[in-house]
């Protein structure tokens, strides 16, 4: 149950820290490959071992995503995905689960189109806990940040290997919830993580923030996830879940009876490694 006055995200990381392990953060796109299958996956994630859930809000031009997540976005848009539709999924999920943090991840333009203030109001009312807006660096946050803060939504920032020491303190100051450390210089799901480089970078970030740090982009295997969750406070896995989903689809790109299980089995294997 959510502690009063404390966000679901903060409560979850605190509880996991007390339990002596890192978090498994899972990413799937809303409406991929269709609303019903996507909803079934979402409902099944906590039971399969996801500690926090990121839901991708589909965008036609996902500049920071690799081919696997680009394809997911195309499937989702074809299935009729809209920001309002994704928020409705979160509301349905919240009717049954009031503890698992939900973070929406996407790009700025659909939010601007929805109306930034209304989007934050509706997201908070639907049970969203945080936002990751990939193409909104701290310098360009003025259109969204005040409304997110007013609604108690965490703005989770990407910190990259290229974020130098001059930039780091300022970039971290604008974060809340947790820090999303991008472990590779590249787009999602395209390069294997260099665990030694990442391990060397985490203390550099810790020196400037008390927030939990989750590592993402480039984590593919249960072993990667287990290591990342130990180096930092959490591991984010997206492309390999979406890849499992894509491989379960039929020739027309439609869900099969095995689709939900394919994703959740992958999550279970990751969760086992993280809980090691």
């Amino acid at each position: 149950m959510n502690q009063p006055g404390k966000s679901r995200i903060a409560s979850k990381f605190a509880a996991l820290k007390a339990a002596g392990r890192g978090a498994l953060v899972t990413y799937v796109q809303g409406y991929d490959p269709d609303p019903a299958t996507s909803m079934a996956i979402l409902r099944g994630l906590p039971g399969a071992g996801a500690d926090l859930i990121e839901i991708g809000v589909p965008f036609s031009d996902p500049m920071a995503d690799g081919p696997i997540i680009q394809a997911a976005g195309q499937r989702a848009l074809k299935a009729g995905a809209t920001p309002a539709g994704v928020l409705a999924m979160v509301r349905d999920f919240r009717a049954e689960d009031d503890a698992t943090p939900i973070i929406l991840m996407g790009y700025l333009n659909p939010i601007l189109s929805y109306g930034p203030e209304r989007f934050c109001t509706d997201a908070a009312a639907s049970g969203v806990d945080g936002l990751i807006v990939v193409d909104m660096p701290p310098e360009e946050s003025a259109d969204l940040a005040p409304f997110a803060t007013a609604q108690g939504l965490d703005l989770i920032r990407l910190i990259a290997p290229t974020t130098d020491d001059a930039r780091l303190p300022g970039a971290l100051r604008s974060c809340s919830g947790f820090i999303y450390y991008v472990s590779i210089t590249g787009i999602t799901g395209t390069r294997a993580i260099g665990m030694a480089d990442v391990a060397a970078n985490i203390p550099r970030i810790r020196a400037h923030t008390d927030l939990p740090i989750a590592i993402g982009f480039g984590i593919r295997t249960p072993d990667d996830a287990g290591q990342a969750a130990r180096i930092a406070d959490g591991a984010v896995v997206g492309s390999s879940l979406v890849d499992a989903l894509a491989k379960s689809l039929d020739a027309k790109g439609q869900a099969t009876p095995g689709t939900v299980r394919a994703v959740l089995d992958t999550v279970r294997a990751l969760a086992n490694a993280v809980r090691g």
Partner: peptide, 12 residues
């Protein structure tokens, strides 16, 4: 205008 890019590109 502005600089709406992912953090990885920002320093660049």
């Amino acid at each position: 205008g502005g600089r709406y890019v992912a953090e990885t590109l920002m320093p660049c």
